[in-house]
């Protein structure tokens, strides 16, 4: 009993300390979460399987390899995607230069016609390859686009202690009117997100389904976005991830768009 109260006291002290250190600023938490989720390591190489499951349970599958390089921490990033499946997009490559202060630059290469196409990137909310994830979900919505408030500091998601943050877009017309995010107290990764429309109705749910440590970095290796209205969901499974592989910036150019860097893409 005595032992128990001591450990309880320690837990309470740690909790208070943790709160004192971390609970101060909602925006700071969102920033940390964004960094943990989108800027892990200096670069990342992942093999991804994406399953789009419609309301009838029918599955569509996309397989691709994704390369990411951070140019500035929390700022510019470059992405490269090589599609393997399905057959009609096989060998297609896609490149994004993400710029949080301006529109992204996007390129698509269609090998069957040797064509490099520049894509307009005005609408970040359009679906990424027909999935329930938008372009913004894949490359990240900058935390400064919303105002954040801490709703609760004592939440639990899948046995993990979490903060609950409410975010509202600064811009009047946006893809949602409120987003609730459950942020893991230990890793700052988003464990769950709920998106509400202007009528206050829940329309999208994000969940971190599987969390693993990879190269010393805690990573969400399986995630799902559910479209409540369409009764459809998309699960992204990272079949493999490597961090800090030493990618060079010149990989993210038209040269490699046409000639996939086979060192990374098998």
């Amino acid at each position: 009993m005595k032992k128990f109260s001591i450990s309880l006291m320690i837990v309470a002290i740690v909790a208070m300390f943790a709160q004192g250190v971390w609970a101060g600023d909602a925006e700071d938490l969102m920033k940390k979460s964004h960094m943990a989720y989108y800027y892990a390591g200096d670069d990342g190489l992942s093999k991804v399987t994406m399953k789009i499951i419609n309301k009838k349970g029918k599955e569509r599958i996309r397989e691709f390899t994704m390369l990411r390089l951070d140019i500035t921490e929390g700022g510019e990033q470059k992405y490269y995607t090589y599609f393997k499946k399905p057959s009609d997009v096989s060998r297609l490559t896609f490149m994004v230069w993400k710029n949080p202060d301006a529109n992204d630059d996007r390129w698509l290469y269609v090998p069957a016609v040797d064509l490099i196409k520049r894509l307009s990137a005005d609408d970040k909310n359009s679906s990424f390859v027909g999935s329930d994830f938008s372009y913004e979900d894949v490359s990240g919505r900058h935390w400064t686009e919303d105002t954040h408030t801490i709703v609760s500091e004592n939440e639990t998601v899948n046995d993990r202690a979490a903060f609950l943050i409410s975010s509202k877009p600064k811009q009047e017309k946006d893809s949602f009117s409120e987003k609730k995010t459950w942020i893991d107290k230990e890793t700052f990764l988003p464990l769950k997100e709920e998106y509400y429309n202007d009528k206050g109705k829940l329309f999208r749910i994000f969940t971190a389904d599987k969390i693993e440590e990879i190269d010393g970095i805690i990573t969400i290796t399986q995630r799902t976005m559910e479209n409540v209205k369409k009764k459809q969901r998309t699960t992204i499974i990272f079949d493999s991830i490597e961090y800090n592989v030493g990618m060079k910036e010149n990989i993210f150019t038209e040269r490699y768009l046409k000639n996939p860097p086979r060192k990374y893409i098998k």
Partner: peptide, 11 residues
């Protein structure tokens, strides 16, 4: 010449 202008692509 090709690039991004006014949220679109100009060529």
């Amino acid at each position: 010449l090709r690039g991004q202008v006014y949220g679109g692509i100009l060529w």
